[in-house]
């Protein structure tokens, strides 16, 4: 059996570093580990997509982003309008990943409006189909033979999209700030994962890679207190990763489209060293 993995970055609270982590894991896997990697952006805010491709601002006054014309599209192609997005997994059933500037790294970008439509699903029977669809897609033999790894970035919610991502995943990693809202979100994520595992066999259980403390400043009392709170909770403590992401401006810098991967920063760069170690620990747990 090959080691095809689907990792979802999730926390139902926002601004905890999901996109930074998804982006860096994708880059680490393709650049450092040489894995053929597919990033999937399921957040209607399209943040991850905009890091890798030149997204198009819709001209309908909505300020929403949509993917650009695919580089492989030609006007002779009458069966395709030249645009593909992660939402197509649900709508047309056919999705065509975009190449990025990094070798071995592709992305299925988000389409703000279409993803927002998927997120609205609430009717029971439709909801179940939506939730299962991503798994059907990611476990297509074609997808599994084209990629070694899939990394899914989610939006801060527990709606159909995040649930679908967890259903499709082999692993989940949960970034969290050491502050009350994101810490409360952890319990929700652990509970959601437990619910998903009810329906899975013993060897297919969704594994929690860990909880990654982000923007951690142990000099701040509230961060220390939350760390203590978490390390003393039997439901949470085993999942806390022995590494963390600090508060560094270089992370913000690495999120600019034209700056490129943090793994092109000099090896002496503190941010690069820190997050490279984070990725090493994460992938050790995945493949270890």
């Amino acid at each position: 059996m090959n080691d095809y993995c689907v990792i979802t970055t999730a926390n139902n609270k926002g601004g905890v570093g999901k996109t930074l982590l998804s982006k860096t894991m994708g880059e680490y896997a393709s650049i450092i580990l040489g894995k053929r990697t597919l990033l999937i952006d399921l957040d209607p805010q399209t943040n991850l997509s905009r890091r890798f491709i030149d997204m198009r601002l819709l001209s309908d006054g909505s300020e929403d982003y949509a993917p650009p014309i695919h580089p492989d599209w030609s006007s002779n192609d009458k069966e395709w309008d030249g645009v593909s997005s992660s939402a197509d997994i649900w709508f047309s059933g056919e999705a065509i990943p975009y190449p990025t500037d990094i070798k071995g790294l592709d992305i299925l970008p988000a389409h703000a409006q279409l993803l927002a439509d998927v997120e609205l699903v609430n009717k029971q029977d439709v909801y179940l189909k939506v939730v299962r669809r991503l798994r059907d897609f990611l476990f297509l033999p074609d997808v599994m033979s084209s990629y070694d790894l899939v990394v899914i970035d989610t939006r801060p919610s527990k709606g159909p999209l995040t649930t679908a991502a967890l259903h499709a995943s082999t692993h989940i990693v949960i970034p969290s700030e050491m502050e009350a809202p994101s810490v409360e979100g952890l319990f929700g994520m652990v509970a959601l994962r437990n619910n998903i595992n009810i329906g899975r066999s013993r060897d297919e259980q969704l594994k929690i890679i860990g909880i990654l403390p982000n923007k951690l400043q142990l000099s701040t009392q509230v961060h220390r207190e939350h760390m203590e709170l978490l390390t003393s909770d039997p439901n949470i403590a085993p999942y806390i990763l022995p590494v963390n992401i600090g508060y560094r401006t270089d992370y913000k810098k690495s999120m600019y489209r034209d700056v490129g991967s943090i793994f092109t920063f000099p090896p002496s760069n503190k941010a690069r060293q820190e997050i490279q170690e984070v990725c090493r620990v994460i992938f050790d747990r995945v493949y270890g």
């Binding site: 492989d72 999705a95 439709v126 897609f137």
Partner: peptide
């Protein structure tokens, strides 16, 4: 380069979820 094109059209999910999404607001 051959484009990677993946389709779930012919799986057991016969109905188009897209159509249902559009109808489910009724």
């Amino acid at each position: 380069m051959t484009r990677k094109r993946f389709s779930v059209k012919d799986t057991h999910l016969q109905e188009s979820i897209g159509a249902m999404l559009q109808e489910q607001n009724q």
